[in-house]
Computed example of a mutant assay.
Amino acid sequence: MKNYNNILVINLMHIGDLMLATPVLRTLRANFPQANITLLGDKKLGDLVVHNQWLDECLLIDKKGADNRLMAFIKFIFKIRRKKYDLVINLHRNERASALAAFSGARTIVGYSKPIFSLFFTKVMQNPSVAHHIGRGPFHMFPPFKYVPGWKHQVHAHLEVLQKTVGVEKIDDGGLEMWIDQKDINRSEEIWRESFPSGTKVVAFNIGASWLTKRWLDSSFAQCADELLAKGYGVAFFGGPMDTEIVEKCISLMKYKNSELIKIFTGKLSLGELGAMLKKCALMLTTDSGPMHVGVSQNVPVVTMFGASPVPGFYPYDAKSVLIKAPEKCHPCGMHQCPWEGDRNLACMKNIPVATVMKYVWELLAKYEDMAGNVPREYGAYECRVVDVATGE
């Protein structure tokens, strides 16, 4: 294995994708303890990584704002070149990230890349966690199509990049990790005291998702919330500003919609505050989403429902957690919109019963609710339990 002294890791993707890259940082530190290790990420997601103890520096690009102009982007490339990295690892296969890696000036450039930029890479790898649609003419995005879902978890795919392109021999996989600034911890303490009576066991709800095909029914979430409230649990709704409307709709469907134990934090928290608040929760009930992976990083037991998402690629990276899926022939499709109509529309989510979900909610609460905020982390235990509603296991 070569020795590298100045390493840049690039991941410009979304919340969950950035969290799934954190085991790479720990493994790099274990193999290159004296190296300067930098992560390049999206500025709006900085809270997730700026305090990561395996990093020496974070570079943040405002990819939807100031740096989204050609001249600003070129200027950012020169900023990277001045850092004189000897190793660049790209973990985001899109044009922007591929270009930043390709023109970084590094001696060794490895990872995922778009074809044109791959000419500048030392070694390019396929990402086996993401879906592949095999085209059948111009309409291959609609059934019938040949679809190949991801077959390896994203964390394992990233670590394989280190093994096969950098020669890393020691894998130090500590799971998903996020360190939180003390000011965010203090703020979350204040919010929590103002929101819930002392001693309340709270279940976090994240009902939004980046794709419609990842969302469980609002009415189903509402039934789950009612069952929890009826037994004295608090219910905390999280998510970003884009989720405000669906949270309001969900609450409108609830029997106990006026309960003082319902609190809405949707669109009101920074990512640092989100992590600190989730850590206080006894359990998280969620779709496949970025906040799900933040919850995992804070060691919160998770119950999640997967529709379009490929299970092997993006399951919650924690053996405590439970993933529930329906046995639909088209699952997982990897599509943002369901092409079927009538009863088949979103059947993968409609056919996950509330009773099945609540069975595992109660099971995990019975085991972990008294350890909220202090659930022990088991090193290496990251493969979640997958439940098929047809068989129960």
Rank of each mutant, 00 (worst) to 15 (best):
L100A: 06
D288F: 06
G199I: 09
Q154D: 06
P376Q: 15
G272Y: 02
V9S: 09
K183T: 05
G234T: 05
E393Y: 08
P144R: 15
K231W: 08
K263H: 10
H158E: 03
L87S: 09
G46Y: 00
G208N: 08
V247W: 06
G105W: 03
L40C: 04
N351L: 11
P312K: 15
G46F: 00
K255P: 03
Q53P: 08
E341N: 15
S198T: 02
K79I: 04
K114S: 08
V49A: 03
M242P: 02
G307C: 11
E260F: 08
F78Q: 15
A276F: 02
N374D: 14
S252Q: 01
W192T: 04
L217V: 10
K146T: 14
K280V: 05
Y85V: 12
V311N: 00
Y233Q: 12
W54N: 08
D62K: 12
K183F: 02
D318Y: 05
A225G: 15
L119W: 08
I15Q: 01
A381F: 13
P197K: 04
L60V: 02
R26N: 14
G46D: 01
M358A: 03
L8Y: 12
I80E: 07
V130H: 01
G111I: 11
G272T: 01
L365N: 13
Q34G: 13
